[in-house]
Computed example of a mutant assay.
Amino acid sequence: MAGDGYVVQDAVGRPLEPHLEHDFYTALRYARHTQHEVGLRYWKHSARVLDVGCQLGALGQVLADTPHDYTGLDMDSSVLASAQASLPAAHFLQGDVESPSVTRNGTYDVVVCSLVIGLLKNWRQAYLNMIRLTKQNGHLFLVDLLRNPWHRPPGDHSVLPYIQEQVARSLTWQEVEELAHAARSWAGNRNVRLRRLLDDGTRLAPDASHCAQPDRDGLSVFELWLHPGNQLPTERDGA
């Protein structure tokens, strides 16, 4: 277990390899961002949450002290075994969100996909499946890297080859806008929010790349959120 209380080990209790530990803490930052944006900590009722491409279950770790029913979905059985060992009360499914067989219409109150969709071959179908998995009055929250020519590496954070590879395989802003346009057609009575963020290796914040002199370096990120109603959850009023 790491110093901040989060479990960082494999299924038999061995410490993770350095690159996997780096992935875990990156996923934790994105999980905390997701929890804050969707307001999950402040909901007054238990929600069924699906984490698509859950890897080691970072979002499950963040939600462990909440009443929510967390399910992680991933294709890697060894990763799921490690996640289950760390989160014995959570649910984990092995499967491919690109496949129609994974779709159980309207099952989840919240579907989250973090740092995954750009790595999928058929990301359009995967996104449609995620919409189908979400209840009619539910939330679908995507956050991922962007493949942009103005991506500005935040020092050592992006020199690792696998991070460079993930950036190279990520969606362009034009492709993300295509997803947002499709979401408005598929989303029914839900609203769609799309915005660009910057990940400086420490936090996610609004991107200043349109400015003549951006104040921070970082990786370009997008956030696409389908949510019910006109008012977003807040710390004050919950969901």
Rank of each mutant, 00 (worst) to 15 (best):
G3F: 14
D4V: 07
G5A: 00
Y6G: 12
V8G: 14
A11S: 11
P18R: 10
H19N: 11
L20C: 15
E21L: 11
D23T: 14
A31L: 06
H33A: 10
H33G: 05
H36Q: 15
H36S: 10
E37Q: 09
Y42Q: 06
Y42R: 07
A47Q: 11
D51H: 05
V52G: 01
V52T: 00
G53Y: 09
G53D: 11
C54D: 09
Q55L: 12
Q55M: 15
Q55F: 12
L56Q: 06
A58K: 05
L59E: 03
Q61C: 08
V62T: 01
V62I: 02
L63N: 05
A64L: 05
T66H: 03
T66C: 08
T66L: 04
T66S: 10
D69H: 14
Y70F: 07
D74K: 05
D76L: 10
S78Y: 07
S78L: 14
S78R: 14
A83Y: 03
Q84W: 10
S86V: 07
L87Y: 13
L87Q: 13
L87V: 12
A89P: 07
A89G: 09
A90T: 08
H91A: 12
Q94M: 09
Q94A: 13
D96C: 05
V97Y: 01
E98T: 14
P100G: 02
T103L: 13
T103R: 15
G106R: 02
Y108N: 02
Y108K: 07
V111A: 04
V112Q: 04
L115A: 07
L119K: 11
L119Y: 03
K121H: 12
W123V: 04
W123Y: 07
A126K: 02
L128Q: 08
L128K: 14
M130G: 00
N137T: 09
N137F: 00
D144L: 04
L145C: 06
N148I: 12
P149Y: 12
P149V: 14
H151D: 11
R152P: 01
D156F: 08
S158D: 09
V159T: 15
V159I: 15
L160G: 07
I163E: 15
E165V: 15
V167T: 08
A168M: 04
R169T: 13
W173K: 04
W173M: 08
Q174E: 13
E175T: 08
L179T: 02
A180N: 01
A180I: 06
A182G: 13
A182P: 04
S185N: 13
S185M: 14
N189R: 12
R190F: 02
R193N: 09
R196K: 08
D199K: 05
D199T: 10
D199C: 06
G201A: 01
D207C: 14
A208T: 15
H210S: 15
A212C: 12
A212P: 01
A212N: 10
P214K: 01
G218F: 00
S220V: 01
F222K: 03
F222W: 00
W225R: 00
L226R: 00
H227A: 02
P228Q: 06
P228N: 05
N230G: 10
L232H: 01
T234D: 02
R236F: 04
D237G: 03
G238H: 03
G238Q: 10
